[in-house]
C-alpha cells in the first residue's frame, strides 16, 4: 500500500496551483523515493516536473510503485477544502482505482475524508538531456512574478538576457517597449538578493512566450527564490525549490528564428 503524511499540507495546495492550469491531468508516480509527476501542456511547449521526496513527509510508506492518475481540476477542488495549516495524508492500495485524501486540522478537532477516482492516463515521458547551462540566475520569486506580469502588457514575448552581473527582461509590442534589469547583489545568501552565474562569461539571450512564464509564476508561493537556467537554443528551466526535499520545475521551449 501507499501512505504519505504531509505535516505542511499547504505545500500540496501550492504545488497544485502551479500545475493545474498547465496540465489537465497527470500520473503521480509514487515509489519508495517519493512522489513525482511530469506532464506537458496541450501544445507541448512547456514541461512541468514535480518532485516530492520521501523526506518531505513525516510518514511515508510505499510497498510497491503506485501510479495515481489524477485529474488536476478535481484534485484542486478537493485540496481547496483543506485549510492551509491542515495535515494532509494520501492513501492508496497497490493497484488503485481511487485515492483517499485525509485532512486533519492543526489542533486535531476536525478531520475531512475524501476519495478521488483515478483515471488511466496515457502520456509520453520526456527524457531531459544533461545540459551545461550558460547562465544560472536566482531572483526573488515575487520579483520574477511581477516582471513577467508587467512585461506581458507589451507583447506575447519576453526576452531574457544575461550578461556579467546582470539579468535583463524585455518586451516589445505595439504600445511600446519595456526593459527591466536586475543587478547582481553583493550578499547572495539572502533570499531578497539576485545572483548571476555564467559559464565562460558569454552573454546569453533567449525569447520566450510570456503566457507560459506567467503560468509558471503561479508557483511563486512555494519558494522565496526562483532559479532560471538558460542555454542558447535550449529550453529555459524555471525552478522553485520546495524546502530541501522537493522542487517544481518548468521547461519552456524558446522561440527561435524560422
Amino acid at each position: 500500500m501507499f501512505e504519505a503524511r504531509l505535516l505542511q499540507g499547504s505545500i500540496l495546495k501550492k504545488a497544485l496551483e502551479g500545475i493545474r492550469e498547465l496540465i489537465t491531468s497527470g500520473n503521480w508516480e509514487c515509489s519508495s523515493a517519493g512522489i513525482s509527476m511530469q506532464g506537458m501542456d496541450p501544445s507541448h511547449v512547456a514541461l512541468t516536473v514535480l518532485m516530492l521526496q520521501n523526506d518531505l513527509f513525516d510518514q511515508f510508506r510505499c510497498d510497491r510503485n503506485v501510479t495515481l492518475g489524477l485529474n488536476h481540476a478535481t484534485f484542486s477542488k478537493i485540496l481547496k477544502c483543506a485549510a492551509n495549516d491542515d495535515i494532509i495524508t494520501l492513501k492508496a492500495e497497490d493497484q488503485p482505482d481511487e485515492c483517499n485524501l485525509l485532512f486533519q486540522s492543526a489542533n486535531d478537532d476536525k478531520t475531512s475524508d475524501f476519495i478521488i477516482k483515478l483515471t488511466d492516463i496515457d502520456q509520453e515521458t520526456l527524457g531531459i538531456p544533461d545540459t551545461e547551462y550558460a547562465a544560472t540566475v536566482k531572483v526573488p520569486s515575487v520579483e520574477f512574478q511581477r516582471i513577467c506580469r508587467d512585461l506581458s502588457q507589451f507583447g506575447d514575448t519576453i526576452i531574457i538576457s544575461v550578461k556579467k552581473g546582470c539579468v535583463e527582461f524585455s518586451g516589445t509590442g505595439e504600445i511600446g517597449s519595456a526593459k527591466i534589469a536586475l543587478k547582481e547583489s553583493g550578499n547572495v545568501d539572502d533570499d531578497e538578493k539576485v545572483s548571476v552565474e555564467m559559464d565562460k562569461d558569454t552573454p546569453c539571450s533567449l525569447s520566450f512566450a510570456s503566457r507560459y512564464l506567467n503560468y509558471f509564476t503561479k508557483a511563486t508561493s512555494l519558494s522565496d527564490t526562483v532559479t532560471l537556467q538558460l542555454c542558447p537554443e535550449h529550453p529555459l528551466v524555471v525552478s522553485y525549490d520546495i524546502g530541501d526535499n522537493g522542487s517544481l520545475k518548468y521547461y519552456l521551449a524558446p522561440k527561435i528564428e524560422e
Binding site: 507541448h44 515521458t125 520526456l126 531531459i128 538531456p129 529550453p235 521547461y251
Partner: peptide, 14 residues
C-alpha cells in the same frame, strides 16, 4: 521572424 517549436525538438521521448 521567430516561431515557437515544441519541446520534442529538444527532448527525446522515453
Amino acid at each position: 521572424k521567430k516561431v515557437q517549436p515544441t519541446l520534442s525538438r529538444f527532448f527525446t521521448t522515453k
